[in-house]
Design a binder for these strands. Sequence first.
DNA 1: ATGAAAGCGCTAACAA
DNA 2: TTGTTAGCGCTTTCAT
Lengths: 358, 358
Amino acid sequence: MQNINNHLQIYCFLANFNLGIEVFKMQKQDVTIYDVAREANVSMATVSRVVNGNTNVRKETRDKVLAVIDRLHYQPNAVAQGLASKKTTTVGVVVPGLTNLHFAELAKGIDDIATMYKYNIILTSIENNVIDNGNVIQSILNKQVDGVIYMCNTMSPKATEAFSRANIPVVLAGTIIDNDHFGSVAIDYKEADRKALELLWKDGKKNIALIVDDKEAYINRGFRIKSYRQFLADHGIKSEYIYDNILTFEDGYNLFAKLYSDGIDAVVTTKDITAAGIVNAALDSQVSIPEQFEIISATSTNIAKIVRPQLTSIQQPLYDIGAVAMRMLTKLMKNEDVAEKNIVLPYQILKHNTTLNK
Amino acid sequence: MQNINNHLQIYCFLANFNLGIEVFKMQKQDVTIYDVAREANVSMATVSRVVNGNTNVRKETRDKVLAVIDRLHYQPNAVAQGLASKKTTTVGVVVPGLTNLHFAELAKGIDDIATMYKYNIILTSIENNVIDNGNVIQSILNKQVDGVIYMCNTMSPKATEAFSRANIPVVLAGTIIDNDHFGSVAIDYKEADRKALELLWKDGKKNIALIVDDKEAYINRGFRIKSYRQFLADHGIKSEYIYDNILTFEDGYNLFAKLYSDGIDAVVTTKDITAAGIVNAALDSQVSIPEQFEIISATSTNIAKIVRPQLTSIQQPLYDIGAVAMRMLTKLMKNEDVAEKNIVLPYQILKHNTTLNK
DNA sequence: ATGAAAGCGCTAACAA
DNA sequence: TTGTTAGCGCTTTCAT
C-alpha cells in the first residue's frame, strides 16, 4: 500500500516536468594529452608514460610533464584509455535488489578493496521477481568491465551465455550457483544450517521449519534444503515444513499465523528481516520467545541486533566475503594465479535471545 | 571490536593468496561493427544507424543488418561508442557510506529511473569520516559520466572544483549543500524538524535535545539546527542541547546515559538507526517510552518499524527523492528544460509509539 | 537511403 | 630515454 502511494506520488512529479528541448552542442574535451605534450615539448607517448607511472622517463622530463599537467589541470580521459588499452579498471557488481542490508555490508567489503586497487564499480541490480533476460548483464558487459562480482542466487541462461562469451572473470560473493566456471567466496551453508537445526533440536523443539526466499535458488535447493532433509532423516522425522517466497518483514510477520496453526515451534530463516517479522508477530500474539517458539536467522545484519529479543543467527563474515571476492577478482583480472577459486570462509553462530540454549 | 576482527580476518586471507603472475595476452574484440558491415554488405555507417535506431534506413537493409547482428552475436562496444559520441550513458552516484538503509532506499529510486532511461550507474562511496580530497570524484569524472547524483552532506573544495570543471549536471538527492549550481530534490527540513519539536513540546516535554550526525554539514547547520534554535527562542527556552557525531546504533545506545544525566526528556535524531539505539538503551534502563522519554527520528527506513516501541518519525519519500532526482538528471543531461531545479517533496510525520500524542 | 572518411583521446609496438 | 605511428571500435559530417 505504501509502495503504491510512493509510485503514484512520483509519477505525478515526473508528469509535471517541462519537456522543452534545446539543441545540445557537442564539444571536444578541453585539455588532452596532446595539449600537454605540446606545452611540455615532448611526445604524447612520453606524457602517457608519465601518466601511467612508466619508469622509462628521465626525472627532469617527468617533472616537466607533471608541471604542465598540473598547470593545465589535465585529467586523462578514461574512456579513451579504455578503448586503447582494452582495460577499463571498472568492475560490474550485480546484486539481487538494493534495499537490504545484507547486500550493503557485502558491498562495503567489495568497495573497500576496489578502491584500494583503483577500480570503479558499476552497480546493477536484478530485482528478485523480475525475469532477467540477460539485458542488464549484457549492458555492463558492453561497457567492457574487466570483471564481475555476482551476488544473485540464480542466473538466467542468457546471462550465463553472455558471461561466457565476454570471457571475463566472474566471482560469486555470498552465493553459490550451479556453474563452476566462476570463482566463489562463501561459507559452508550446508554445515551452518545443520548446526542451527541441531541447536533447535537440542532445545527440545520438535516441529522445526525451514523458511527460504526462493526454493529453486541453487543455494537453497543444493545446500539448505538438502541439509534440512538430511536433518529430518537423521532424526527420523517424517513431516517436512518448508515455507517458500518469504522475502520481507511483512512476509515474515504474516507468515507467523500459519506457522502457529501448523504447529511449528522453531524455524530457521534465510533473512534476518523476515525473522524480525516473525519475532514481532509472535510477540503480538503473546507467544513467548524462546520458550514456546525459537528462531535462528541464517543471515545476520544490523537488524539482528535491533530486534528484541535479539536474534540468534548464523553470522556470516559479510564484509570479508565481499573483500575476499573482490581481491580474488583483481587477481583474475590481472591473470595472476589464484590458489583456490572456491573459497570457504568461517562463520559463527551467535546465540542470543531467540533460542534457549546459551 | 567486531570490525577489528573482521579486518584481521580478511588480511589473513589476502596474505595467503598465491602471487604468481602470468603474461596477459591482449586480444581484440571478437566481432565488431566492421564484421557486421562486411557480412551484411553495407557500410559501418549503416550498421551504426541500425544499432542506434536511426530511421534513415530502408526496412530491408535494417532487417538484413539485424539478421547479421543476431547471427554473429554482435554487441556494440560502449567504450568506443562513448569515445566517438562523447556520451557514456553512465551516471555517477556518490553516497556517504554504503551500510545504511537510508541510502539503499534512495538508491532504489535512482536505479529504477536510471534503468528506465538506459543509464548505468557508477557507484562511489565517500565514507563519513574520510577526508575526500576530490580523488574519488575526479575518478568518476574521468570515466566521462554524463551526470552525477550526489547524496553526501558535504563537498570538499577540490570536489566542487572538479565538478565545475567537468561541466556536467549534478543533482543532490536527499541533501542540501551550499552551492546553487546543483539541482536538488529534498524535503523542507526546517519545517519538518520544527513540527517534530512542537509535537514533543505539546506532549509536555521540556528538555528537548537535537541529535545530529555532523554539526558542520550544511543540512544541519543551515536547516535543522537553525530550526531547533528558532524553536527554543520561540518558547523562551534558554538551554540548548545539541549532540554531535552520533552515527551508529551503538553511538545512540551509549549516548542515552548522558542524555539521562543531562535531564533530557525528548529528542529528535537525524537517523533512525541511532534512534533505535537510544530506544533500546532507555528500555534497558527501565525508562518508559513514551511516558518518561520521547523520540522522533527525522529519517525513516525499514528500521523504524522493526524497533519496539515503533518509532515516531518524519517519513521522507526516499524512493521518490531518488527517482525524481534521477529524472531531473536525465533531463539536464539531454539539455532539456527543467522547470524547477530545486524540488521540495512532501513528507509525513508518522506518529507511532515513541511519542504520546497520536 | 547509403557510403567514405575523418576523427574521438589514448596506448603500445617499433624505431631511433 | 624519447618519438613516430598505427590503431582501439565507433559516430558523424559530408557526399552521393
